[in-house]
Design a protein around this nucleic acid. Sequence first.
DNA 1: GAATTTTTGTTGCGTTTGCAAGTTTATTGG
DNA 2: CCAATAAACTTGCAAACGCAACAAAAATTC
Lengths: 154, 154
Amino acid sequence: MADDPRALGDPGSESFRVDSYPFYLLNRAVSRYNVIIEAQLRAIEIDIPTWRVLMVLGEESPRSIGQLSKTAVIHLSTMMRIIERMMKAGLVERAPDAQDGRVTNVILTDLGREKLAAARKLTAPLYRQVISGFSQNEFTRLLEMLNRLHANLG
Amino acid sequence: MADDPRALGDPGSESFRVDSYPFYLLNRAVSRYNVIIEAQLRAIEIDIPTWRVLMVLGEESPRSIGQLSKTAVIHLSTMMRIIERMMKAGLVERAPDAQDGRVTNVILTDLGREKLAAARKLTAPLYRQVISGFSQNEFTRLLEMLNRLHANLG
DNA sequence: GAATTTTTGTTGCGTTTGCAAGTTTATTGG
DNA sequence: CCAATAAACTTGCAAACGCAACAAAAATTC
């Protein structure tokens, strides 16, 4: 018990060390990833929020602004502005939902699909670099643990 | 090879699925964590950047603004403003470095240490909730993989 | 079925952020 | 040593963000 590694990551413990705090490491990795990916995406003139929305819409379009906001964990008002920007850039269109008069659906345009394809091509090499050294097993376990973290925060 | 889980996370692959993209899951977990922790920290009137800097300074103070910026992966100019805010709140002090006339050192004040202690107490329960279900082994492996991701981005 | 509550989206406004351009101090190359 | 380059901040400015207040539609309650 004395040398439980989980104690080192516990902010309430005396032996706390930032390096063992999962969310410090998560934040660090994400931040570094964002810096790199942002620079790459600049070549095709899209920013990170746009890239995130494109990926989500790529799986299922249309989606409502609220769904997008929840899926990407971005405040609704912020998602509004992201969609506005994407509309101006011609990547998506907005249309009121037929069933529910409150919801606004967001639809990927052809240009949006092209940009998404371009972004995928562009970011694939970085992905391969990042997971290099990860076995299939490790990779699967990583995803599983990230899902578990997310669930534990619900 | 056909069902290599790593292919599902590859933006360049046909079979790409957002749910298998590690940085999507990372971003999601971090964002959700930030939302929760931000609400908790509001009770003691500090924001997330302040909390991050306090944690880092808690391990080693003084540190230069540049070091803080690199450690926390936050732009230098942004770190400037964070330190300014923290100074106004009395959490840190600034002092020019004796050896190098360019660098500005940041020192934790007594009030800063108190706030850090309070923040730790406050966030400990969430930490325990988040890692619940993680064995010592899993926890260690998680940290190791996050470090590997970070290194692969270097 | 009318009133209340919840859900979904929208907009105004102040704060925070990041880029770019500048200043000052160290370091490096002739 | 002097010039040129690099490193470590610093600040102005525009863009992005989040909160809060609002509007409109749907669901719930009585």
